[in-house]
Structure formats: C-alpha cells, structure tokens
C-alpha cells in the first residue's frame, strides 16, 4: 500500500546517494513492488535535476570541444581520424575511450568494478602515456576499445602479489584484448608474466610480458581462435618465453563471467 513513508524512501533513492539506515526497507519495497513508487522514482529524479538550473553555466575552453570531437570514432570524419602524426591526440583519445568504456558499463555487476577502475584511472592514464612510443600498436587497442562488445574485467592480486591490479579490455569480435596492470613485482631475468584466457574452463596462452620498472604493464594479447568465448583471465609467473600450460603461481585473476 503506497504511503508517505514510500514517498520518503523513493525521495531518498531519487537523489542517488547511499540509503544508509533505510537501505533494507527500500530493498523490501522494490522487492514487493509498488506501482506508484515505480512511477514516482523517475519523476523525482527529474525533479531533483531542476537544481541544476540554479548554478551559473560556464563555457568550457575551446580545447575541450576540439579534443572531444577528435576522440570520436572515425566513422564520419575520416579526415581528422587518419592523421598519423596525431600521436598525442591518439593518446588522449585512448584515455578518453578507456574512460568511456568505464562509464558505459551499466551492468550492476560491473558497477563496483567501474569504481575501482576509476580509482585506478591515474595509473591507467600513466600507462597509456608511457605507451606513447608504441603508437604502432594503436590500431589494435583502438579496435578493441571501439568495438561495441568491449568488456572490461578487473583482475585482483593473488598469492604472492596481493597488491597487483589489472584490467583486461577484451573484444569477442576482435578476438583479442589488452591488459593494463600495476603493482607487479619485478621478476628474475629468466621469468616472465604470462596472460591466460579461459575458454571452456581451460587456460589458453595469450602471450608473455614484462612490467616496466615501476611495476606497470600494457600488454596486448595474441588472437584467440574463432568461435571461442573468453570466460576469464589470469596471469601467472612462467619461465621466460612462456609455456603452453600454466605451471607457476597465479598473481592476477578475474572473476569468471556468466
């Protein structure tokens, strides 16, 4: 039965902030369902948005507009997009695309990951920046980031390296992806990190990589065979050059999807 208390809960929810002591009751309300509340919520969200009309507008610097338009996928602006000298613009575009990927993930399961990703954004930006010299690889990364089916998976540190962090950007359509990692420990010269993609529950080698001295890595995977769906990712420590099957300790792993 719709009530004043319902309106209160929906009002608080409409502001999009933690509900604190009211969270449980609101969850119950959602579970039980109340048509009046369901109609009310979007209206109160809109009502709250009217506060935005009370702040003074500010015209953004012109550079912001230029950067924005330059970072759009090349579909309709071939002249601006295929300029090879625009490496800085590309780095920016990649960073923007990465941000986009993060903000585009509205799946509730990924929401938390998104927040963690945001928190690591500076690492990421630094990693992207450090890749400036590897512009040759930009095509793959752009293809992954721009593909409609791009997924972002957060890998948490395991075993010997609990503080290691990584994100994998993966496109099923491109059949490849790339990994951005931080806090990786340096390895002896005869060891390397190896990235595995799990297909049908089995690890498949996607290549080896070395972090930079600060423990960061930006690594692009090998291509996965057609018709195989990546379920999860992990990083292990292996003899230099890698092995066909993992043998060393797992240092990074994601949560299986599906």
């Amino acid at each position: 039965m719709h009530s004043e208390r319902h309106e209160e809960l929906v009002s608080l929810a409409a502001l999009g902030l933690p509900l604190e002591d009211d969270a449980a009751e609101y969850a119950r309300l959602l579970e039980e369902g109340c048509p009046s509340c369901e109609a009310l919520l979007p209206e109160l969200r809109l009502a709250a948005s009217s506060l935005a009309a009370t702040v003074p507008p500010r015209r953004p610097p012109a550079s912001l507009r230029d950067e924005l338009l330059a970072s759009l996928s090349p579909a309709k602006r071939p002249s601006a997009a295929s300029r090879p000298s625009a490496s800085a613009a590309w780095v920016f575009a990649a960073a923007a695309a990465v941000l986009f990927v993060m903000i585009a993930l509205d799946d509730a399961r990924l929401r938390r990951q998104r927040e963690e990703l945001r928190a690591h954004n500076s690492d990421l930006a630094a990693a992207v920046e450090s890749s400036r010299s590897e512009i040759a690889r930009r095509d793959l990364r752009a293809r992954v980031l721009e593909s409609d089916d791009v997924r972002v998976l957060f890998l948490g540190g395991k075993g010997p390296q609990p503080n290691a962090r990584a994100k994998v950007f993966w496109s099923e359509r491109v059949r490849r992806g790339f990994l951005v990692a931080g806090n990786l420990a340096p390895l002896p010269a005869d060891r390397q990190y190896q990235l595995w993609v799990f297909v049908d529950g089995k690890p498949v080698d996607t290549g080896v990589f070395d972090p930079d001295p600060s423990g960061r890595a930006l690594f692009e995977s090998k291509e996965l065979a057609a018709n195989r769906t990546a379920q999860n990712f992990a990083v292990t420590i292996e003899p230099r050059g890698g092995l066909p099957q993992p043998s060393g300790p797992i240092v990074l792993a994601g949560t299986p999807s599906g």
Partner: peptide, 28 residues
C-alpha cells in the same frame, strides 16, 4: 556544455576535473 560544466563546477569546484566530467558525459 556550459550548463553541464556549471553543474560539474558546483560539485567539484572550477577544476580541470569538472571539464573532464563534461567530456566524459559527451563521450557517453
């Protein structure tokens, strides 16, 4: 964009961050 930047300014202060937010929103 000016209106949105105004909102971001009000929340974050007149910072580069506010401008980044506006950029993110249009990418979105």
């Amino acid at each position: 964009a000016p209106r949105l930047l105004g909102v971001a300014d009000r929340i974050l202060g007149k910072t580069g961050e506010a401008e980044e937010v506006v950029q993110e929103v249009f990418l979105y």
